[in-house]
Design a protein around this nucleic acid. Structure first.
Lengths: 274, 274
DNA sequence: GCAATCCGTATAGTTTTTGAACGTATAATT
DNA sequence: AATTATACGTTCAAAAACTATACGGATTGC
């Protein structure tokens, strides 16, 4: 089980192999060769190493089908989601046409870089920002603290000196004609309450569904009991309804309640309770 | 410019470096070392190689800031989207709490593997499928042809012998209690019309927006003229409204029309037209 | 029976990477 | 003003990773 103290490159290959066996249920040297451009000899070594690492449930070579097959009770070395699996192992030839194109939001790398460097250097930066509601401003000082993602767009969380509060900014709306002048913070930034508060949003199958439908919803979202709990930062909670489609007609989940507490260290994943 | 005939591992490192310089505007050996676990000497070699590859606009070492800075007119070696950039380079320490948790759909790898192997072997496979509308069936033969993604879930496209047509199946709704028995195709599968038809969906800023708002929408979606064209396979078109939020209250784009034609070879990306 | 395609192993040679040394420049600390 | 720390760069021998090639075994398909 020397898996963790492998070199980066070889670990990458074993992870790929692991995904092949987990999601395809089969793997060949050829897969490694095609993916990483290594020699057949090296691929053989990788296989041998994988067999060692796989412990109690090693894949077995099926000489009839001329391929390795995952064991009945195969345990992945490095668990992955179906989406990750699709991207790495299920979509042959990385066929882009098998994916519905996402709304692609352009972004100017040099604007992002300006914001990033201000964040890293803990400086304030002067930007012109166009909000959808109030239109373009004449320029303001903000102090970026984090990049975040709501699953659709990337945001910059920053303290706004104009509004005296933390806000989410869309990089795309930062004018490329901003000065991007920077200045040191005059004083330490205030505490970001919403960022450091954990929101636990409790969901249940939408009322009105039949028993069968409700249980199908539970199966699809992977919870057994009455409620599904989604944890995130309070600062991101606003985006949850859209991300999970709760506000849509065909929604199959609805909110029950939300708890807030101080964020312990770090946690943000859907958890399954009772 | 020997970028393309590099070994996989080193190319990976140069791409990472490229993203640092593009989206952070800065890079250090330390970044490579932290990410790939290589030695300082090797990181120095990678930098040297990157400088060679970067042609007319090499990054410049700023001895005051003790870091490499991207050139004014920096050109990325391997372009990337903001989302990719966020995942690789903008989210420090891969802080999972900076991402709004997506609806995570469980999936049973062994079910996926059964479907995958039937697809690869061009076989039909027997499954019990539970649709949201008609409930569980008693088992049916399907012939999987592709895995696809609508950006939310992964689907299996398959020919259904029961319905005599191609359909999209959600792996999560394939009962784990299916037999997964397989059999060779009795005859070649029929032509998959919707899969092999290209849909061009034309969008424009939602009517009712002010001139300023419409132009903000154009900027955010990266098109200049009246219309934005999204290309995809007709088989995936159904999912487009949800993926792009066209059916939502706050939608800022609306459909104008859709063209169909025979799919040439492969194309599926948002393109910008007059 | 023969070719093709998987597997496994082994050896020798090449390439990549390391580790350690030594030197330069700048900024911060003492 | 001297010291420390952190960046950078180069060099070189040693170690590790990987390739190329060869050989042998099992199965399938023609």
């Amino acid at each position: 089980m020397a898996f963790d103290d492998l070199k980066h490159a070889q670990r990458e290959r074993l992870i790929f192999l692991d995904r092949c066996l987990t999601w395809r249920g089969m793997a060949n040297r050829r897969d490694l060769i095609a993916r990483f451009g290594i020699s057949s000899a090296q691929a053989a070594l990788d296989f041998r190493l994988y067999l060692e690492c796989s412990g109690k449930t090693p894949p077995i070579y099926d000489s009839v089908r001329k391929t390795y097959l995952a064991a009945e009770a195969h345990k992945p070395l490095a668990p992955s989601s179906l989406t990750e699996a699709f991207e790495t192992v299920l979509n042959p030839e990385d066929d882009a046409t098998a994916i519905l194109p996402p709304p692609l939001r352009r972004a100017d790398p040099s604007v992002i870089a300006s914001l990033y460097q201000a964040m890293r250097a803990k400086q304030a930066i002067h930007v012109r920002y166009t909000s959808m509601t109030s239109g373009a401003d004449g320029g303001q000082w903000i102090a970026p603290t984090h990049f975040t993602s709501d699953g659709e767009s990337v945001h910059v969380r920053a303290f706004s000196y104009k509004h005296r509060q933390y806000r989410d900014y869309l990089p795309i709306r930062v004018g490329a004609d901003s000065t991007f002048e920077t200045r040191p913070l005059s004083e330490p930034l205030p505490w970001d309450e919403d960022w450091n508060t954990r929101a636990r949003v409790w969901l249940r199958p939408k009322s009105g569904l039949t028993r069968e439908q409700a249980s199908a919803v539970r199966r699809e979202y992977g919870f057994e009991g009455q409620l599904l709990c989604v944890e995130t930062r309070k600062a991101l909670e606003y985006y949850l309804d859209r991300r999970w489609g709760l506000n849509q007609n065909g929604a199959r989940l609805e909110r029950v309640k939300t708890d807030y507490d101080k964020l312990p260290s770090d946690c943000s994943r859907a958890a399954v309770i009772e």
